[in-house]
Design a protein around this nucleic acid. Structure first.
Lengths: 178, 178
DNA sequence: CCGGATAACTTAACATGTTAAACAAATTTC
DNA sequence: GAAATTTGTTTAACATGTTAAGTTATCCGG
């Protein structure tokens, strides 16, 4: 609400040898990564306030949420399911355990592995948040359309599968040291 | 590739009073936020190695990329375009300036505003990265299909618009103080 | 068995996400 | 026009993302 400045339009002033500043490789704001980022942010913006009211971050919620689906799970598996990197998960588990929202023990068969499960306190928290969370999800579904939402998810899944094969192929560029 | 453990399947052992551990509110891994997160990660995983080879993070690249499209831009506008929060942008600009990849000055009309522009060194860096970046983008487009990609972007855009109206509506929960 | 891989985590270190607070310059009020 | 408010940007503080290094426990070949 502040009258867009000359941020972009006026280019032909009298800047001397100033070329069109190079045509943007791609509208940029319309690139796939940006589209996905903005879409996800638009979605999460809806949930964050509610989670925050319950003292949970998005990632902490993901972990607790994943734990409700299993009896017990190993750290590595949990990282895969909650889509978190090991170091992040490690830190968050430390915190959740300190808050008594989860329980940990080491596997008796393999002392390297850690087994995690949600505590009753954690379950209660989940139950307290779930209603609001579900309501928001329902609202999103209504606004966007259930049909379209399902279609979008299918397309996102296929995008994942399409790229899974690519792997890290664009590396051979500046193999300096190693 | 290690033979999935009993992470989920076996629930009916003899855990006594252990109920079905509650049916997951939603398959979770199939929730919209997770779908968007995984899809975006799948895409970025392709670009990160190349950017890294040039000493750039994803966000630094977004900023330089946005700067090539304009002659000069104010910090707030840049934050909006590059989709970064103020504090993140502030830190990154400090670093990019120290590396002489950008230039800053304060607006003469309003001393609060800062004006940012890319430096020639920054432009050279962009030019060095762009080819690989474009190639990767092209590969993604090929794998997924140009038609489908455009459709996906349209759907993502509409999702954004659908949620823009919702704003922060799910807050009235635990208005403790204030 | 023993010592060199491997594996499963955790720590470290640095960059960004996120919210709140601080600050200074500009705008509005009375 | 000085005080109160608003605006643009930065700092602070804490949580997570990301890559590299540990740590400790298994596995494996000799």
């Amino acid at each position: 609400m502040a009258g867009k400045k000359s941020t972009n339009g006026s280019r032909s002033e009298q800047e001397g040898t100033l070329e069109p500043r190079r045509a943007p490789m791609r509208e940029f704001s319309r690139s796939l990564p940006m589209s996905l980022l903005r879409a996800r942010e638009a979605v999460m913006r809806q949930f964050r306030p509610s989670l925050r009211n319950h003292g949970l971050t998005e990632q902490q919620w993901r972990i607790l949420r994943a734990l409700t689906a299993v009896d017990t799970i190993e750290v590595t598996e949990l990282a895969r399911v909650a889509f978190l990197l090991g170091p992040s998960l490690s830190r968050i588990l430390r915190d959740l355990e300190a808050r008594d929202l989860i329980e940990r023990r080491t596997a008796k068969a393999d002392l390297r592995r850690g087994e995690v499960s949600i505590s009753s306190k954690g379950l209660k928290l989940i139950e307290a948040v779930a209603p609001t969370s579900e309501a928001i999800y329902a609202e999103i579904t209504n606004r966007y359309g259930a049909r379209k939402l399902a279609e979008l998810q299918d397309m996102l899944g296929e995008l994942e599968r399409s790229l899974a094969a690519m792997e890290v192929a664009g590396e051979g560029e500046a193999e300096v040291e190693e």
